[in-house]
């Protein structure tokens, strides 16, 4: 079962929006580097760490963008989603710590395996977490959850950032209807990361979706075909 009370996502952003999204981290690194001239040693250490983390974040996005142009020949394998989410969370922990946000992974007792390409699934999870980091309020947690949903495996990333305005949501829902038009992202974002994630999901016969929460924040999720290899064993 897929996408109840949710919207499909993923639309190629305009070139202006793309350029903004790729330019923003470069501008940030430049400003931090220039500002650090007058910093104390401790402040400079923080500044260097922020430059490094921004560079890594930007690299992940540009590498995923490159990868999104060659998804035709994929090797799929059973993937332990709990383990993969733990790895992603561990890699993102320094960035989350520096942004003052916690990241946690909730896994069921019994492992859930999905069929997909490990590199692409990992990239999707990074992309959804990055989106949550962009829009999460300071000190608000980011929660990854893995669960079964019918024959699918579902990975969701919940944040507590600002929700879509009702007017925006209504506009998006009216556009959806039976047409393939999809929600781009939250206002103020190019939606590049979500576009790439949706491309990767489709390439693996999966689907990306989003739910907006009444009490603030959103959950973005990916459905992937579940592997029943473990059940057979």
């Amino acid at each position: 079962m897929r996408g109840d009370n949710s919207e499909q996502i993923g639309q190629l952003p305009s070139l202006v929006a793309l350029s903004h999204e790729l330019k923003a981290p470069l501008a940030l690194m430049r400003q931090i580097a220039m500002a650090s001239e007058h910093y104390t040693d401790a402040e400079r250490e923080t500044a260097f760490e922020r430059i490094r983390l921004t560079a890594e974040r930007s690299l992940r996005l540009t590498e995923a963008l490159t990868r999104s142009y060659r998804t035709d020949e994929l090797e799929s394998e059973p993937i332990n989603l709990g383990r993969l989410c733990d790895e992603v969370a561990a890699e993102l922990t320094p960035l989350c710590r520096e942004l003052g946000q916690d990241i946690s992974v909730k896994t069921p007792k019994q492992s859930i395996l999905a069929v997909g390409n490990r590199e692409l699934v990992s990239s999707v999870i990074f992309g959804l977490c990055d989106n949550a980091l962009n829009y999460g309020q300071a000190a608000a947690p980011i929660e990854l959850k893995i669960q079964r949903d019918g024959d699918d495996a579902k990975i969701s990333v919940r944040d507590y950032g600002p929700s879509l305005l009702k007017s925006e949501l209504a506009k998006i829902k009216s556009k959806l209807g039976s047409s393939p038009q999809t929600v781009n992202s939250r206002p103020g974002s190019s939606g590049l990361g979500l576009y790439i994630a949706s491309q990767f999901a489709q390439a693996m016969d999966g689907q990306l979706g989003m739910t907006s929460h009444k009490n603030g924040g959103q959950t973005f999720y990916i459905h992937l075909p579940q592997s029943f290899q473990m059940a057979l064993v």
């Binding site: 923003a24 501008a27 940030l28 400003q31 931090i32 220039m34 500002a35 650090s36 007058h38 910093y39 402040e43 500044a47 922020r50 921004t54 942004l99 962009n134 309020q137 300071a138 600002p162 103020g188």
Partner: peptide, 25 residues
């Protein structure tokens, strides 16, 4: 909304004698 950018700018402005406050949205 870019907390690190705002921090860097605020620090510089503070050194230039400004009183600063940051809002993320």
């Amino acid at each position: 909304d870019d907390r690190w950018f705002a921090d860097a700018i605020a620090k510089n402005l503070h050194q230039n004698g400004w009183q600063t406050h940051i809002s993320p949205n």
